[in-house]
Every structure is written in C-alpha cells, then in structure tokens.
Simulated scan of single mutants.
Amino acid sequence: MHQDFWETVLTFCNTTTTQVGAKLIQDFGQVQATEKADGSLVTRADQWADEALRDAIAHAFPYHGVLSEETTHVFPDTDWCWIIDPIDGTTNFTRGIPLWGISLGLLYQGTPVFGYVAVPPINSQFFGFWFGDSGLSGPTGAFQNGKAIAPSTAPPSSNQLFNLCARSISVLKHDAFPCKIRMLGIATYNLLTVASGIALGGVEATPKIWDIAAVWAIAQAAGATWHSLSPDPIFPLIPGKNYGQVAYPTLILAQETLLPTFLPLVQHLGK
C-alpha cells in the first residue's frame, strides 16, 4: 500500500476519535444504561457514537465494510473491514470511572493490519501496524501518544502487575499468584497495558471480536505474546459469519518465556 493510504487511515482515526471522544466526555457519568441480551450494558451514548463512527467510515472509506458491537455482527464480504467498539468499558463510563475507550480495528482479508484505541479520559491514543503475511507494506511499530511502545522485560514479582477481567476472578484461587492483580473494567486497555510495558500480563475470559480486533494488531506490532485460550484460530474472520456471540478467551504476556508461569493459572478460562 502507498504511504499516503496509511497516513490517511491514521489521520482519520485520530480526527474521528477526537471528535467523538470530546462529545462522549460530555455524557461521561451522566447517562443511564440498559442491559442487552448478553448481559452487557448499552447507553444512548454508545448508540450515537456507533452511528457517528459508521457514518465517518462510510464517508472516508466507502469501499470498506464495518462490523460493530452495537449494530452489525456479520463479517462482510469485502477485502477491507473496520471492526469498531464505540465505548469499550460502558460500565466504567456510566459510573464515572475514567477508564473507557473507542476502538477501531482495520482488517484486510479477515485479519487485523492496523489498530487504534483512544482512551479519552486519560488523553491516551494507541495505534499499531501489523501486516504479517498479508502481502501489504507500510509503517511498522506500535505507539502511545506518538511514542513507540514495547512490553516489559522484567521478571514476575510482587511489584509487577497482571490484569484480570470480571469473568476471570477464579484465577484468585491460586494463593501464590506471581504478580499484583489489577481489574480495569475495559478489555482494550487491559491488554494494551501489557503491550505498552505497564503490566506483565493480562487475561480476558470472554472478549468479543470488537474487544480484541484493534488490540491484536497493536500487541503484535509492539512485540507482546498473544496466546489464545481456545483451540480455534481467531483470524482470518469468515465472510457471512455472525460474530455476535463468539468469545475469544485470551492471555497476553510481555514475554513468550512467561507462558510456563502464567498459562497453567489461566488456561481453565478457555474451557
């Protein structure tokens, strides 16, 4: 791909999430949520933000498909597709906890090649390019606020962090867990703290495709180790398949050498 294309993609994500994020800040902690069929929460802010993102994509990239948490869960039969989550961390958003984000993942032929996650309350923007065996070319690396990020090289200890999600607290049955535990309430940032060197590891027991598509590319680009707790491959996604109820239990680690330490503690989450 031409360099201009990737510059357009990055500028689009920065501009669009800045605009949507500024309006979401006004609604932050001020809206009521309702419960969806899967038990997760949704607000009118999720719904208008979803519409704003989809409209912006349709205008800037009319030949790209879109899969969104709040609307279309069927993966389209297009070479390029955006997978979006207008508010990751809706519970935090509704309760006034300043950790929630906007997630945009760009897939080529079913596999993420670019990810962008904005976390407006802490003024952080993460992005990364990961082309793998797609045949595409362009910029490389992963970044937070324009600065390159990489996972930690520290060994496990009581002064290092490991993130759980609400559905993985069974991990706490292990009395001698090798790190301090944190629970952030936002899947994307949970995993991004590993890619950016804050935590040594993180686990998400039931993330959906919109929780992980953008982060998958960023984590790969940063050099983190992504380990699926399910035997089935995540990517490429299949055109025409409905991904609304598909979960992807995931372990992410700062170093591949940490797998023997942490995998036995969390692998039951994939069953």
Rank of each mutant, 00 (worst) to 15 (best):
V113R: 00
G21L: 03
G128F: 02
V113M: 08
T18M: 09
A222L: 05
D85L: 03
H73I: 05
N159P: 01
S168M: 07
N190P: 07
A150C: 09
Q220Y: 10
A195F: 00
L251P: 01
H227W: 10
P233R: 10
S228E: 09
D79F: 07
T111E: 15
H59M: 11
T8S: 14
T250S: 14
H268Q: 15
L67C: 08
Q109H: 15
W226F: 13
V113F: 06
I102F: 03
W100E: 02
D133E: 15
Q255V: 06
G65L: 06
L106P: 03
D88H: 03
G89V: 02
P231Y: 11
G29W: 08
A58D: 14
A214Y: 01
F114T: 05
S103C: 14
S152P: 06
S103D: 14
V203F: 01
T261P: 09
F28E: 02
D50Q: 11
F235P: 03
P260M: 13
P120I: 07
A150G: 11
A224T: 02
L99F: 12
V20C: 09
C81S: 14
G29T: 10
I102Y: 00
C165M: 04
S168F: 02
T71S: 15
S134P: 07
A213I: 02
P233Q: 12
V119Q: 02
R167K: 14
L136D: 10
F129E: 05
I97W: 07
S196G: 14
F12Q: 07
P112K: 07
G39P: 06
M1F: 07
